[in-house]
Amino acid sequence: MIEHSEPHIVPKKTYYIVFATLMILLFVTVAMAFVPLGPFNIYVAMAIAITKAVLVVLYFMHVRYSNRLIWVAAGAGFVWLVILLAFTLADYSSRGWIKVPGK
């Protein structure tokens, strides 16, 4: 995570490896959709999607070779998305916890 003044050129081989991994993950995620996992289906699908996204961010988008500021920027978007989801779902998931009299 050093400041690069010279562009870091990623070797083509890295791109091929990342691409192959992405393709494999794509077929894994499709295949897993047909395995009866019940409620865990979504967690598996999201775990694979996040892995794929991280690969794209790190290698195709060069974050792995970028300075810390870019890491923070990329992370901030994700963290704020989690804030939006977590606090809203905190409401939805706890709605029925208190019984309303007469209902």
Binding site: T29, V30, A33, F34, V35, P36, L37, G38, N41, I42, A45, M46, I48, A49, K52, A53, V56, V57, F60, M61, H62
Partner: peptide, 28 residues
């Protein structure tokens, strides 16, 4: 490089949309 970042980002959005929309448990 910068347009590339944008392109990859749009790709990432799809990486999430695909399982969310197409693959909601196909086992039954």
């Amino acid at each position: 490089e910068v347009c590339g970042l944008y392109w990859h980002f749009v790709d990432i959005v799809w990486i999430f949309l695909f399982p969310l929309l197409y693959l909601v448990d196909r086992s039954h």
